[in-house]
């Protein structure tokens, strides 16, 4: 069943014109984006910088509206922010004056969950991300990876159907990133959320996504959606050596690098 549906979504902005002083010009960030995300699917979006990844995310959160087209969730058009979607940002966006627990409870409070239940729920999600013993730490007392775990727990705690992730592991070191990728897969299996994961890492996109949406830049459009025929990534410890992984990775790489080679011929 379709969970999210992009229908010919275009977003234009007015930006400063660098050729004419004081003038503004129209800039098309994304154009005619069209694809669907299935219920419970893990889909990754990969593209070069300038492909409108952040614009897409803002549209999904409902903080901005498309210039043309529409985005549907469960058949209803997105008109504003809502707790049916949880967002995880690259820079964590944790409230520094709240402890790990307080940050998680913030979302629960936003949802109107009574105070007595908040604590228990926060405990559960702290445990889920492996931070049971860090509930009372402030963000500055946590490492980058731990902060991102708290952010994931915060977004999961108010029980959204869809988890939107904006390059969530890009600021982490390679080892922490790999650990969190595996954990995210585990959490996805356990919770059955629909996950839209934006990244610029090809390996990450192929490793996590059941499908990879390859975007092109200026303006952002969907180039191709690649199916990744890997069965269980968590069972196979060395999934990245799997021939299916390697060929999928090559396909995505080629799609992303095609423009350069075309340019080289001219």
């Amino acid at each position: 069943m379709d969970k999210i549906r992009f229908e010919r979504v275009t977003k234009k902005f007015l930006v400063r014109d660098e050729h004419k002083k004081g003038a503004q010009r129209e800039f098309t960030a994304i154009q005619n984006i069209e694809f669907t995300v299935r219920e419970g699917e893990f889909i990754t979006l990969v593209g070069p910088s300038g492909c409108g990844k952040s614009t897409l995310l803002d549209l999904l959160t409902g903080l901005t509206k498309p210039t043309k087209g529409r985005i549907l969730i469960d058949g209803r058009e997105i008109t504003g922010p809502g707790l049916d979607r949880g967002i995880v940002f690259q820079q964590y966006a944790l409230f520094p004056w709240k402890t790990a627990r307080g940050n998680i409870e913030f979302g629960l409070e936003a949802k109107g969950i009574p105070k007595s239940e908040r604590k228990e729920k926060a405990e559960y999600y702290l445990d889920l991300v492996g931070l049971k013993n860090f509930a009372d730490r402030y963000p500055h007392e946590l490492s980058g990876g731990m902060k991102q775990r708290v952010a994931i727990a915060r977004s999961l705690a108010f029980n959204p159907d869809v988890l939107l992730m904006d390059e969530p592991f890009a600021a982490l070191d390679a080892q922490t990133r790999e650990t969190l990728q595996t954990e995210l897969l585990r959490i996805w299996k356990k919770t059955g959320k629909t996950i839209i994961f934006i990244t610029h890492g090809i390996d990450e996109a192929v490793y996590l996504g059941e499908r990879v949406v390859v975007l092109t830049a200026n303006p952002g459009t969907v180039k191709k959606i690649v199916d990744i025929p890997l069965k269980d990534r968590l069972e196979d410890a060395d999934v990245k050596s799997n021939p299916a992984f390697i060929s999928a990775r090559r396909e995505v790489w080629n799609l992303l690098h095609e423009p350069e080679f075309q340019g080289a011929h001219i």
Partner: peptide, 28 residues
């Protein structure tokens, strides 16, 4: 930090709560 505001807004909280729960403590 605009990201904190964005993060709180995405949780669909009211303007009053945004002010009271985010802007005020961040400004202290």
């Amino acid at each position: 930090d605009p990201l904190l505001i964005k993060s709180a807004r995405s949780m669909n909280i009211s303007s009053f709560k945004l002010f009271y729960k985010v802007i005020l403590p961040a400004s202290v």
